[in-house]
C-alpha cells in the first residue's frame, strides 16, 4: 500500500494488537511482522514507528524491557495492564470504523 496516510491513524492500534498477540517485541521485529502478515502490502516506516512506540510508552500503555542480545542492547515493548484494556477499546473502534468505511465505499453491500 503506497498511501501511508490511510493507515497512519491506525498505527497505534496495529502496534498494540501485535503486542497483544506476541507478548513482547522490539522495533525492527514489528516492522518485519507487519510486512510478513500483509505480504509486503503494508510497510510501516521507521520514522513513524518509533515515535508511535515512544508516545504509547509515555501514555503508560506500553512497558519496556532491555536485554543484551549478541553484542548489543535490545529494547522490548509489551502492553501494560492499562494497555491491554485500551487495546480492546481501540480494536472495537477500528472495526467499527472499517465497517463504516465499507458502507461508504461500497454502499450496495449494506442492503
Amino acid at each position: 500500500m503506497k498511501n501511508s496516510q490511510l493507515y497512519k491513524g491506525s498505527l497505534n492500534t496495529i502496534i498494540m494488537k501485535l503486542l497483544e498477540e506476541q507478548g513482547r517485541m522490539y522495533g525492527y521485529e514489528i516492522t518485519q511482522k507487519v510486512k510478513e502478515i500483509t505480504k509486503g502490502e503494508l510497510n510501516i516506516t521507521e520514522g513513524a514507528l518509533y515515535p508511535a512506540l515512544h508516545k504509547l510508552e509515555a501514555d503508560g500503555l506500553l512497558d519496556v524491557e532491555v536485554e543484551k542480545v549478541d553484542n548489543r542492547l535490545r529494547k522490548y515493548y509489551k502492553l501494560t495492564e492499562k494497555g491491554t484494556t485500551e487495546n480492546v477499546n481501540r480494536l472495537a473502534e477500528l472495526e467499527e470504523f472499517i465497517k463504516n468505511i465499507q458502507t461508504i465505499v461500497n454502499p450496495k453491500l449494506s442492503y
Binding site: E46, G47, Y50, P51, A58
Partner: peptide, 25 residues
C-alpha cells in the same frame, strides 16, 4: 540503505517525538 528508510530528515523526527514523550512523562 536502511538509513534512507528514515526519510529526508533522518533521525530528527524520532528524536523530537522522543523529547516530547519524555517531557510529558
Amino acid at each position: 540503505i536502511e538509513f534512507k528508510k528514515f526519510g529526508v530528515f533522518g533521525f530528527m523526527n524520532v528524536v523530537e517525538k522522543r523529547q516530547l514523550a519524555l517531557q510529558k512523562r
